[in-house]
């Protein structure tokens, strides 16, 4: 009894499925260019990391170069400066992460206290701007500005009778110069997210506390700060993926041999080993080491953000 009833159902279901597939065919076609570009420029390099385990020769390619196991890693970590480079990278990146949260939160809180909407908008427009300039342009400006004898800052120091400071030439100061200039470039842009969170705080809370006679400071402490806490938490967790991103564009354009001891980072090392010295395998090994650690930190941070906040990446 069942059989004759079921028999005709099957082709209909099949047809439906085929129709759905046909209707969705354009969707696959639309994705094709992006998928192809990602394949060539992201996935092939991803697999190209096998170079890290080869004595890579460009004329032999990924497939025929000699396999050397972990020799590239052993070689590079045995070099006297590598551990220092790793530490420099971590130190600069970690300070940038901290400054990249503290400064924007602080400025966003102050901006939020501005009563005049017009002034607020003007300040925002101005402080977002440096983010959009390239590090080439900004390096040109900073090299000029920070020059001890010629730069404005040097002249101000001299006018106050202070010793000239070699912001870009003194290995002790260089990492802090990097953190300060990076904060200068991106703090404004960083405030966007916090300002959005601040406008999301329920205004009734402020009104209620006004009636209770709470001062502005008390309101900041007990309403605004707790209101910002979730977003600050999320941004902190997500920043963990950057623990080894010390900022290649910036440092490459501002460093010099006399600050290598504190300013050389993994990315600049990869550049010099790979594209200047043509030690492709060794340079790839350093790059892979960095990518792997960044990936692990990013994966952990996403999992943590997923579990403990309602943040969803996609």
């Amino acid at each position: 009894m069942d059989m004759p009833q079921k028999m005709p159902v099957l082709p209909i279901a099949k047809k439906k499925r085929r129709d759905a597939w046909l209707r969705n065919l354009p969707l696959h076609a639309m994705l094709l260019p992006a998928v192809a570009l990602l394949f060539v420029y992201s996935y092939i390099p991803l697999f190209g990391n096998v170079m890290a385990f080869q004595r890579f020769r460009p004329n032999l390619g990924f497939f025929r170069s000699e396999w050397v196991g972990l020799a590239n890693f052993r070689y590079v970590f045995a070099l006297p400066g590598t551990m220092q480079v790793l530490w420099n990278t971590f130190f600069i990146a970690a300070m940038k992460i901290i400054a990249g949260i503290v400064v924007p939160v602080f400025v966003a809180l102050l901006l939020n206290e501005m009563r005049s909407a017009r002034c607020k908008r003007i300040v925002q427009t101005v402080i977002y701007f440096p983010y959009f300039l390239s590090w080439v342009v900004l390096s040109g400006i900073f090299i000029d500005l920070l020059s001890p004898s010629q730069g404005i800052i040097g002249r101000v120091f001299a006018a106050m009778g202070l010793e000239p400071v070699f912001f870009l030439g003194d290995a002790k100061i260089f990492p802090y110069t990097m953190v300060a200039t990076e904060s200068w470039k991106s703090f404004g842009y960083g405030t966007i997210v916090y300002l959005a969170a601040l406008t999301g705080i329920d205004p009734n809370l402020y009104e209620a506390s006004d009636i209770d006679g709470a001062s502005r400071w008390k309101q900041t402490l007990h309403i605004t700060m707790p209101g910002l806490r979730p977003i600050v938490l999320i941004m902190t967790v997500l920043a963990l993926g950057n623990v080894l991103n010390a900022g290649f564009d910036q440092i490459f354009n501002l460093y010099s041999p006399q600050v290598y001891s504190t300013g050389d980072i993994l990315d600049t090392l990869v550049y010099r080993l790979g594209l200047v010295d043509a030690q492709y395998g060794v340079a790839t090994a350093v790059g892979l080491f960095k990518s792997a650690i960044s990936f692990a930190m990013l994966a952990i941070s996403y999992i943590v953000a997923y579990k403990y906040t309602d943040y969803r990446v996609f």
């Binding site: 990602l38 060539v40 092939i44 991803l46 190209g48 990391n49 790979g274 492709y280 340079a283 990518s291």
Partner: peptide, 23 residues
């Protein structure tokens, strides 16, 4: 598809392999 797009965001192929692809 979405995973296909997310993976390159999380794992950077690296400077030297990218250079080799273009070359």
């Amino acid at each position: 598809y979405i995973w296909y797009f997310i993976v390159p965001m999380m794992f950077y192929g690296g400077l030297i392999p990218s250079y080799m692809v273009v070359r």
